[in-house]
Amino acid sequence: MHAPTVRATSRLAAIAIAAAAGTLIWSPAQAATGQADKYGPGYAIPDSEGYADRSCRSAIRGQLDGAFSWFVCWGYGEAHPGRNGIWYWTRLDDGAWGNVPAVDVNSGRDPASGLRGC
């Protein structure tokens, strides 16, 4: 029952450590040439989890390694540690599709500008 809170606290600690060490670079999402109408880019924090549903209580389908990622669309779901209910849909590193909470994505604003709803 407390796993999402523990995971979120661990993630926030990892972000603080990485930021202090200068290894985490945040940049607002920018549209790539020819892809803006289909996908929206952004950076996910290290080891962001992708969920089956728009809820941290749903099954984990995979992770994003913290590298630059493409997001297909966004939608409302359960509130997450970012205190909003915005989730992004993407292909995870293992090839599965999943929902990533907005708190784990640096898009500049939520929902990401120009990214369609789904």
Rank of each mutant, 00 (worst) to 15 (best):
I15D: 13
R54F: 01
A20E: 13
A29V: 03
W70M: 09
A18E: 10
I25R: 11
L12Y: 09
T90K: 04
W70Q: 12
N106S: 04
C56M: 10
R11C: 03
R7N: 03
W87C: 01
M1W: 08
Q35A: 12
K38D: 06
P81T: 03
A14C: 11
A31E: 12
G62L: 02
D65S: 15
R57P: 00
M1H: 07
D110C: 01
A29Y: 04
G40C: 15
L64T: 14
Y39F: 12
R109A: 07
P101D: 05
L12P: 00
G22W: 00
W74D: 01
A20Y: 14
I25K: 15
G82C: 07
G77A: 02
Y39M: 10
S48V: 00
D37I: 04
A59P: 00
S55T: 02
V6N: 08
S10Q: 15
A19K: 15
P4M: 08
G22C: 05
G98M: 03
T90D: 00
A16G: 14
H80M: 02
L24E: 09
W87S: 02
L24S: 07
C56R: 12
W70G: 00
C73P: 00
V103A: 12
S27V: 09
T5C: 06
G62K: 08
A67G: 15
I45L: 12
A102C: 08
G85I: 03
D94R: 14
S48R: 04
S10N: 14
A18M: 04
Y76I: 01
G40M: 09
A44I: 03
H2D: 09
P111R: 10
A13L: 15
A59D: 09
K38T: 10
D94F: 06
A19H: 08
G66F: 05
F71V: 02
H2K: 11
D93T: 13
V6E: 10
A52V: 11
A112Y: 01
A18Y: 01
F71E: 05
R83H: 12
V103K: 06
D65I: 07
A21M: 11
G66V: 06
V103H: 14
A112F: 04
R54D: 04
A19S: 15
A14W: 06
F68G: 07
A36E: 15
A18H: 02
D104L: 07
T9Y: 08
W26L: 13
S113W: 07
R83Y: 10
K38C: 02
R7P: 00
P4H: 08
V6D: 11
P41Y: 15
V103L: 09
D110N: 14
D94A: 08
P46D: 06
L24F: 05
I25L: 09
V103P: 00
G50D: 05
P111F: 07
